[in-house]
């Protein structure tokens, strides 16, 4: 169990590495090309993995909205690669998490038609507070660095 806890945490580091790498590429070739490279390389690698696992069966045909994930994925990588070098790794990660978590609450609400629990609503408020604090913290650091540079 401890091993799986570590793997899940390590996966966050892997996610960060991917976004940092795409962000670096984006500042050289632009966000859309960075998204293209990310998806082409990932597709080729997954093809190899599926081939090695000799796992080629496709069972049921999914409903068409299931294919929308690729569209949002391409847009997400482009947007995230664009802001990554501009905001820094930590800000980029925290703001993406904030947008992701708040949208997840809305998506669950729309999918299941059940009002979110009080705990979840409190979670949204605390996430928004974090986003606000990040603005304050960064504005303050900006000013301090400007003053120090003078």
């Amino acid at each position: 169990m401890i091993g799986y806890l570590f793997v899940a945490f390590f996966n966050g580091v892997v996610v960060g590495t991917s976004r940092a790498t795409n962000g670096r590429l984006s500042s050289a070739v632009g966000p859309f090309k960075a998204s293209l490279w990310n998806h082409v390389v990932g597709f080729l690698l997954l093809t190899v993995i599926i081939f090695l696992a000799s796992d080629w069966h496709f069972a049921a045909s999914p409903p068409w909205p299931a294919y929308l994930g690729g569209v949002f994925g391409a847009l997400f990588v482009a947007v995230n690669s664009y802001v990554f070098p501009r905001l820094g790794a930590m800000n980029a990660a925290l703001l993406a998490i904030s947008g992701q978590m708040i949208t997840a609450v809305l998506v669950d609400f729309l999918n299941q038609g059940v009002t979110p629990t009080v705990v979840r609503c409190l979670g949204v408020v605390i996430v928004l507070l974090g986003v606000y604090l990040s603005r304050v913290t960064n504005a303050r650091r900006d000013k301090a660095e400007k003053d120090a540079g003078r």
Partner: peptide, 15 residues
């Protein structure tokens, strides 16, 4: 944009 990117990510994961 960064927050909107997170929203796109949630939609991607959903689908």
């Amino acid at each position: 944009l960064a927050v909107a990117g997170g929203a796109l990510l949630a939609l991607m994961i959903n689908y």
